[in-house]
């Protein structure tokens, strides 16, 4: 079982638990990018450190738009990538980690940016 984001309307998303064919079970992956072959498409699990978990939702949305032919799903310890034909494991891992990094940087520095804009543009 793993989790996916389901669009429930205008900019609202909820997390659903669904089965992903070939996806590893939580705890299966000892490496940070672990490819498994199941009866469906090959899947890669990119383990994400706990500190980054709050940013996985946003990262998955972005990854899905950047790589529309692949599928990104949130699991307990990371992000599962399926149907990533043509993209190597190292590239997948990097793309996923960078997306999560970006979302964390954005979220944790937003107040800094807003304060800057407010200070510079206030009359």
């Amino acid at each position: 079982m793993t989790t996916t984001l389901v669009n429930t309307g205008r900019l609202r998303w909820k997390i659903n638990e669904v089965a992903v064919e070939g996806a590893p079970r939580v705890g299966d992956g000892h490496r940070s990018a672990n490819r498994t072959e199941g009866c469906g498409s090959a899947a890669v699990t990119v383990e994400i450190a706990e500190a980054f978990h709050p940013y996985m939702d946003a990262a998955v949305l972005r990854l899905q738009s950047q790589h529309p032919y692949a599928s990104f799903d949130i699991a307990d310890h990371g992000i599962v990538v399926t149907d990533s034909a043509g993209i190597g494991d190292i590239e997948i891992r990097k793309a996923v980690l960078h997306a999560v990094y970006r979302e964390r940087i954005y979220a944790e520095t937003l107040s800094m940016r807003l304060a800057l804009v407010a200070a510079v543009t206030s009359k």
Partner: peptide, 11 residues
């Protein structure tokens, strides 16, 4: 110390 947000891109 506070670090301003950094954006990045692989070369």
């Amino acid at each position: 110390m506070n670090v301003w947000p950094l954006k990045f891109r692989e070369t």
